[in-house]
Simulated assay, not measured.
Amino acid sequence: MKYEVDPDFQACGEKAFQALGIPPDQPTPRFPRGDLVSRRAAAPFYRKLLDLDPEVIGVTRTQYSVPASDGYQLPIFAYQKDDHRNGTGLHPAVLSIHGGGMIFGSAEMFEPSTKADVAATGVAHFSVDYRVAPEARHPTPVEDCYAALKWLYSEAASLGFDKSRIAVAGLSAGGGLAAAVALLARDRRLDPPLAKQILLEPMLDDRNTKEDPELMPFVTWSWDDNWTGWDALLGDEAGSSSVSAYAAPARVQDLSGLPSTYIDVGMLDIFAKEDELYAVRLRNAGVDVEWHLYQGVPHGFELRGQGSAILRKALLNRQSALRSF
């Protein structure tokens, strides 16, 4: 297969990098397998890219502390429009799960994009600062996220939200965790069921560690990165037959009974094939699926393609999904 970058996206990305003082021809950093320190040290770069967008006003952040299953106090950040309490009736809400390859990230890192989605859609986001690997291996991250969902259900009425209109959404590793939370909610018979799952370029399959040489020049999250993230989460079990679907949702056998699903990914993303297969399998299981494969863009394209036509299209699709339940 011939891969190429969308030219408009590339031009916008170069402008973003120049704004940060980075030469446009500087190669994407590559780190050896298992090098957590370097990957974590590079993480603040994503926030710098997000901060290039105009500041979002009219969205308020409120912090809550929620006990996890082991007693740990989970920080949860609620993002709501300032006029949230205006009008009558209960509102929809989203449990938002941040990205970071299972090994870094926070609600604060992705706050600008969270606020932008809230401002555009009016749908409140509750972003959970789940514990990351390897300090917290599976099942801690997904159980943290599920505890946040259970808390949101229990407090929904007092906070002004409709329990029947709660969705789970996540980006990258957060998308994988969102898919796993949806599986837990189904299997634990959460009532009422989740209204929707919104999976943005989700990290679903721990077996995806074999490099595609033709795609390699374009990737921003590499197979070595993927190996590092899954190894941190699963240890020696990564890639083996013993991995739980609640860790790697691509492993699940039965996809029936899951909520309406939105899923997207870029063609230059190492997750493209696993995400497309997951979308196909969901449809075959009778789940309503909206699927988008964006040509010519890599993993994390929403962070580096400000102003590009393809990113505008993707954001409109994502925000439409947030309004749909």
Rank of each mutant, 00 (worst) to 15 (best):
residue 11 A to M: 12
residue 12 C to F: 15
residue 17 F to D: 11
residue 18 Q to L: 13
residue 21 G to P: 05
residue 35 D to W: 03
residue 39 R to L: 10
residue 44 P to L: 14
residue 47 R to Y: 13
residue 50 L to E: 03
residue 51 D to P: 08
residue 51 D to W: 03
residue 65 S to D: 14
residue 68 A to L: 11
residue 68 A to C: 09
residue 68 A to T: 09
residue 69 S to G: 08
residue 69 S to T: 06
residue 72 Y to N: 05
residue 78 A to R: 11
residue 79 Y to R: 08
residue 80 Q to N: 10
residue 83 D to I: 07
residue 85 R to M: 06
residue 91 H to V: 08
residue 105 G to V: 02
residue 105 G to M: 01
residue 106 S to R: 00
residue 110 F to S: 10
residue 110 F to L: 14
residue 113 S to N: 02
residue 131 R to K: 02
residue 140 T to H: 05
residue 141 P to V: 14
residue 142 V to I: 10
residue 143 E to G: 00
residue 144 D to L: 06
residue 149 L to T: 02
residue 164 S to D: 12
residue 171 L to T: 12
residue 186 R to M: 11
residue 187 D to G: 07
residue 190 L to Y: 04
residue 197 Q to T: 00
residue 200 L to I: 14
residue 201 E to H: 14
residue 203 M to V: 12
residue 206 D to H: 10
residue 207 R to K: 15
residue 212 D to N: 15
residue 216 M to G: 04
residue 216 M to R: 05
residue 222 S to Q: 07
residue 224 D to F: 12
residue 225 D to M: 05
residue 227 W to I: 13
residue 235 G to D: 04
residue 238 A to M: 12
residue 241 S to C: 03
residue 249 P to A: 08
residue 249 P to F: 03
residue 257 G to A: 02
residue 261 T to R: 01
residue 264 D to M: 02
residue 279 A to N: 04
residue 282 L to Q: 01
residue 285 A to Y: 10
residue 291 W to K: 03
residue 292 H to I: 07
residue 293 L to Y: 10
residue 294 Y to P: 08
residue 297 V to C: 06
residue 318 R to N: 03
residue 322 L to D: 08
